[in-house]
Write a protein that binds this DNA or RNA. Structure first.
Lengths: 154, 154
DNA sequence: GTTTCATGTAACTTCATATGTTACACAATG
DNA sequence: CATTGTGTAACATATGAAGTTACATGAAAC
């Protein structure tokens, strides 16, 4: 099964926006993410509705951050994406009357629930600010400068 | 994203086989699982290769358990299925040179690894025997008798 | 031995879903 | 009012999982 990388992608975009004071257009973001402007808008719609980003139309328009990086966790971002499923596996729930199936599901359910809870808890512990700080640490370690365009040129 | 229920389904099948001393054909299993005999064979191939089940051809043939339920864990079954991906989300890894992406991936990776480790550890703790015992507990609690065919009739 | 019943597996088809694309309405800026 | 941008619906494409067909192989019944 193919893994969904929306969360990873959105975080990537958000951190880039944090480095940029000017609005960034969907088109530019799409180039950086190797995808399509419309896809970007679709993904960002949830974040906009939650007020984490703002979209402006017209000349000089585009996306800007509209939240305090300290206050927004990866969990918040995840939720804004519509809380997509975390686990690639689930229970069969045909034949709910079958006691064998009930036994199997009971065993797996608890395991799955715990793993999901762990994931959500972890995501809730990390703020965008923490990610940004990590980025800046890497940046000064490498001593380079940063640019959205060139960083994704290859 | 749709969840894969192969593990759940296979466990279901295995427990039913444990209740039955006669071999069960792919066709019967397929009916019970609402699927196709060929799909059953495909799924069971891994288990057969690991020696957990045996397949016999010809009259009176079919699938039988070939392992000690005490010794086989859900983790073993999971592995026999080819260790399918556990998490529905993953990292983008385009632009590996981008420091933003590195920071994002570092944060998510650890979380994802931990969740996977938790899942695998849990699966490793539960034996087929434990599942079977749970089933029998439910069975006597309901006081009924058990039959593969009727349990999936609806 | 040959007929029947079963698995083993390759090849193909179908289906569901995620992603990409087009098109156009709407809004803001110069 | 032309240009540049988002918002979104509608459609197209691609990907992969599941279902299906077909046939080879092997074992048991007769």
């Amino acid at each position: 099964m193919k893994r969904d990388s929306k969360l990873s992608g959105v975080l990537h975009v958000l951190l880039h926006m944090a480095e940029q004071s000017r609005p960034i257009t969907s088109e530019v973001l799409a180039k950086a993410m190797c995808t399509n402007p419309v896809v970007i808008r679709r993904i960002m719609a949830g974040l906009r509705d939650e007020g984490y980003v703002r979209a402006e139309k017209g000349h000089g328009g585009g996306w800007t951050l509209a939240c305090d990086l300290e206050k927004v966790t990866l969990r918040d971002v995840y939720d804004a994406l519509g809380s997509p499923v975390l686990l690639a596996m689930g229970n069969r729930s045909e034949s709910p009357g079958c006691l064998v199936e009930q036994a199997v599901n009971a065993a797996l359910d608890q395991t799955f629930r715990d793993a999901e809870a762990l994931l959500l808890a972890r995501l809730g512990e990390v703020t965008l600010a923490a990610l940004s700080a990590d980025f800046h640490k890497r940046l000064s370690a490498r001593g380079g400068k940063h640019d959205l365009e060139t960083a994704h040129a290859s």
